[in-house]
Design a protein around this nucleic acid. Structure first.
Length: 336
DNA sequence: AACCGAAGCAACCGCCCACGA
DNA sequence: ATCGTGGGCGGTTGCTTCGGT
């Protein structure tokens, strides 16, 4: 089954770190004669290495067009963007970053970017806002602020919700959604009063269009599909008019159903900056066949076989996410 | 100064596929 | 059709470095 490893049976072949002398032998040989057959190269070059090791050393480290040094911010953004499109296709990603190898990009992803995204509340696999409890760790300020709604003398809330709506771009808003879902599903009792107040305020500021008891079911269903959230309580028109069950729907209504214009949300078409380049808040993302959470297709919604030519969620991939990230991984100005 | 754990990264591993003999 | 070879690929390992105590 399959071919045997190239170095099997090659007794005495050296492994481990390459010495400068070995590097020089390899470089000198390739520059003079080309690599030719990698299997025969070690012997011809006077190296006690297997051919595969030589090839990897050359392609990942010794090649003259390799760019060493730290990744630039632009490179980081490009990697994140390409990863959202291609997944772990490191070689494909590497073709878009001249001088960088797939191995280098892969290592950088695993050691830096992955953690960075996690710190931002973004799932590094799906590139969607995380909905698990770990969100709680990064947003203490949000929780404190949520509590302000229930504070003395804050009947209208500590924030101007309209100002919040103007400032919140879609990604941040979805992060907020994720947090609320985490809270609702985790049922953190101590935080419930503050979040209830927050939700009530959102509903009030929403002009009652989809407010208490009027959650748009179809929208919520779609939201559940793209979010992979199959544990959200089913909502009906007879559902309780208030309480944690309506939180998710209220957020959806707040973001997508209240008539906010692209301008209001700071959205624009393709310009630079930290705003979203999709029209208004990104609508629910239809499932695609290769989504890992593709099994969350309850309720007769979009099927997994449907693969849209372009996903409205794709706009989020062009976010200048790093611009909005504090050194501790929290969002800048999330709720100012 | 010594120790220790975490982080970073080069290198390796094992599987796969394409291609030519 | 089969086999050997080259080489691409993603995942993993283990060594080195760094920072904290």
């Amino acid at each position: 089954m399959g071919r045997s490893p190239c170095c099997d049976g090659e007794a005495g072949v050296k492994k481990g770190p390459w010495t400068p002398e070995e590097d020089k032998l390899l470089v000198d040989y390739i520059q003079e004669k080309g690599h030719g057959s990698w299997r025969r190269l070690p012997k011809l070059a006077g190296l006690n290495r297997c051919g595969k090791s030589c090839r990897l050393r050359w392609t990942n480290y010794l090649r003259p067009d390799i760019k060493r040094g730290r990744f630039t911010e632009d490179e980081e953004k490009l990697i994140i963007h390409l990863h959202s499109l291609l997944g772990n296709k490191w070689s494909s990603i590497a073709t878009k970053l001249p001088g960088r190898t797939d191995n280098e990009i892969k290592n950088y992803w695993n050691t830096h970017l992955r953690k960075k995204l996690l710190g931002m509340g973004i799932d590094p696999v799906t590139h969607r806002p995380r909905t698990d409890l770990s969100l709680l760790a990064g947003l203490p300020g949000l929780l404190a602020a949520a509590g302000n709604f229930g504070g003395a003398g804050s009947a209208t809330g500590a924030w101007d919700m309209h100002a919040l709506r103007l400032q919140a771009d879609a990604a941040k808003f979805q992060l907020l959604q994720g947090l609320v879902r985490a809270l609702t599903t985790a049922a953190v009792p101590a935080l419930a009063p503050g979040m209830d107040n927050l939700m009530a305020h959102l509903a009030a500021s929403n002009g009652g269009q989809n407010g208490a008891g009027g959650v748009d079911q179809s929208m919520l269903l779609q939201q559940c599909q793209w979010d992979g959230m199959n544990n959200l309580p089913a909502l009906t028109n007879s559902a309780p008019a208030s309480g944690m069950h309506n939180i998710s729907g209220m957020f959806d209504s707040f973001g997508a159903g209240d008539g906010l214009s692209s301008t209001e949300l700071g959205c624009h078409g393709g310009a630079s900056g930290s705003n979203v380049t999709v029209d208004a808040v990104a609508p629910p993302r239809p499932m695609v066949a290769n989504d890992r959470d593709c099994n969350n297709n309850g309720g007769g919604g979009v099927s997994c076989e449907q693969t849209p030519a372009s996903s409205p969620f794709d706009g989020l991939e062009s976010l200048n996410l790093m611009d909005d990230l504090n050194t501790d991984g929290s969002w800048k100005d999330l709720l100012e």
